[in-house]
């Protein structure tokens, strides 16, 4: 299945900003974190189709996954 993966802030360094990637059925968010060598402890926000998600959530065809480190501002 095709998943659009978006990375932000320091997670872009040495990786990418946005990439449409192929994954097998029943892939979890955590599998993508592992693949990209992003430690879960560094993850601040996961947005799956614009809604906050946990790393044990499974993905479906066409999903948009945005991964941020812990960030803030205002």
């Amino acid at each position: 299945m095709q998943i659009t993966v978006k990375l932000f802030a320091s997670f872009q360094t040495g990786r990418f900003q946005c990439d449409v990637r192929s994954y097998p059925e029943s892939t979890l968010v955590s599998h993508i974190l592992q693949e990209l060598a992003i430690p879960e402890s560094e993850v601040g926000i996961i947005l799956l189709n614009m809604i906050h998600a946990k790393s044990d959530q499974s993905l479906a065809e066409g999903d948009i996954l945005a991964i941020f480190p812990l960030v803030g501002g205002g």
């Binding site: 978006k6 932000f8 947005l47 945005a66 501002g73």
Partner: peptide, 12 residues
């Protein structure tokens, strides 16, 4: 900077 929020709020 604070503008790190643009992508966060947009994605949300």
């Amino acid at each position: 900077g604070t503008n790190v929020l643009t992508n966060v709020l947009n994605e949300a």
